[in-house]
Nucleic acid binder design. Structure first.
Length: 402
RNA sequence: GGAGGGGUACCCAAGCGGCCAAAGGGGCCAGGCUGUAAACCUGGUGGCUUUUGCCUUCGGGGGUUCGAAUCCUCCCCCCUCCA
């Protein structure tokens, strides 16, 4: 990697980014890094409020991996202090603040997932409570004096909330400043994040300058839409594909994305280059379903390996294309007295309430051995052999005689 | 500190004494058509109950009333303008 030209290195860094600026500063940093043999410090801040990392995070992690492979130093900041504030970025609401215990717990599971992509040996990890917790009121006031309210309110999400008369709390205005202070605290050379972070990154530059430090370069990666194809992938929209999803779930979720997202996923998740993308584009036009199946396979393979991807694919074809029954389904042992079907579904946790079970039956969404159930009050009595109940498209329950 | 507007189900939003488990839209779920795509059509969307029905819900507490999301009162919260 060391014998790349700066142009080549920049090309790698630039791949799949939205912003990479200012370019001159990046060039200067890279040059100096080479001359002095000191890697650049790459900041990645994580708010440990949601331990489930998804493909949206992956796009970012992959970029960090590029930089790590180029020999730069990833500095991973767990925002344990800022998590107690709640990042207002892209939010329409104030985020709940986390307790210290929650943060610690979340941070642990966070790393498990991060190290699916990054090399733990080469990743520096730190917590921002280390320096933010040490600031005195006087320090905080000094920090707050670096920015004006008007500039802070220029931000899209604040502006939107302001216009829609949704509350903005003072602590939320402080958030970008603290995040900027993080950059100063670790001497960040480049900060990496989604495009929704751009504003925070820009503020960080000002703060670094204020404290007499060379400002960081800003690198943003695109946000990807979730399985609904509309909103950005996020746990709160429940449209995410988690890195920890089972191979089967992951495969199925990819298959449910809208067609016009296929190419984007190939590009951002699988990192296809332009030539490869052209071929995929052709396939998408000719046969979108196959293109998506390939996408699903390759994404599962990326996180779970070939064998499991293969199995996930077979599972999908069997259950959803041939409408057969999957092999691993929950089992419910029937009471010897016999029980109402709705009670069984409720007790087995297949439906959240008995009313829900009733509704589903009424609408033909419940099948026993492929036959729709029409009787809401169907009672399951002694069985000579197990029966399989299908609820909706993907919920199954096997009921066995005692 | 003053004046005004507002808080309704997952979200937006109507209702402003009984016909309100609460219009409409979005989302979501199920069915149809499909490729677990999109679009479209149909139905559903608090809980319990076989139907009747019962219970809990309209920021929170008290009250008026045969009866309250709707009226009164106190409290909490949000927004706007003025200071």
């Amino acid at each position: 990697m060391k014998n790349l030209s700066i142009e080549e290195e920049i090309k790698i860094i630039q791949k799949n980014t939205v912003d990479l600026l200012p370019m001159e500063e990046l060039v200067a940093k890279l040059k100096r890094s080479r001359e002095k043999g000191i890697p650049l410090r790459i900041k990645y801040g994580a708010d440990p409020s949601r331990p489930d990392l998804h493909l949206g995070h992956y796009v970012c992690l992959k970029k960090l991996k590029d930089l790590q492979d180029l020999g730069h130093q990833i500095v991973f900041i767990v925002g344990d202090f800022t998590a107690m504030i709640g990042d207002p970025s892209g939010k329409s609401k104030t985020r709940p603040r986390l307790s210290e215990e929650e943060v610690k717990e979340h941070a642990r599971t966070y790393f498990e997932q991060v190290y699916m992509v990054l090399d733990p040996e080469k990743t520096e990890v730190t917590y921002n409570s280390k320096w933010l917790g040490a600031l005195t009121s006087k320090d905080v006031i000094e920090l707050a004096a670096t920015y004006t309210v008007a500039r802070m309110l220029e931000r899209d999400d604040f502006k939107m909330r302001f216009e829609k008369e949704i509350p903005i709390f003072i602590h939320e205005l402080l958030y970008p400043l603290f995040q900027g202070y993080d950059s100063y605290a670790i001497s960040s050379d480049i900060e990496v994040g989604g495009t929704d972070q751009k504003f925070n990154f820009v503020i960080a530059r000002d703060i670094q300058k204020y404290y007499g430090q060379e400002p960081q370069v800003i690198l943003t990666v695109p946000l990807i839409e979730g399985t609904d194809g509309k909103l950005k992938m996020s746990k709160s929209y429940d449209n995410y594909i988690a890195l920890k999803d089972s191979p089967e779930d992951m495969y199925g979720k990819v298959m449910s994305i809208p067609d016009d997202l296929i190419l984007k996923y190939f590009k951002l998740v699988l990192y296809y280059d332009d030539d490869e993308l052209k071929k995929v584009e052709k396939l998408v036009k000719e046969n979108p379903r196959d293109a998506k199946a390939r996408l699903a396979f390759e994404i599962v393979q990326l996180f779970h390996g070939y064998e499991k991807a293969k199995r996930a694919e077979e599972h999908f074809n069997r259950v959803f294309r041939q409408k057969e029954i999957p092999d691993n389904i929950p089992v419910y042992k029937l009471d010897s007295e016999g029980e109402l079907l709705i009670d069984i579904l409720y007790k087995a946790g297949v439906v959240p309430s008995k009313s829900e079970a009733r509704r589903l039956i009424r609408q033909g969404g419940v099948k026993i051995n492929s036959e729709p159930v029409t009787n809401e009050t169907l009672e399951i009595k002694k069985l000579s052999e197990p029966i399989v109940v299908k609820v909706g498209k993907r919920r199954f329950l096997k009921i066995t005689p005692e």
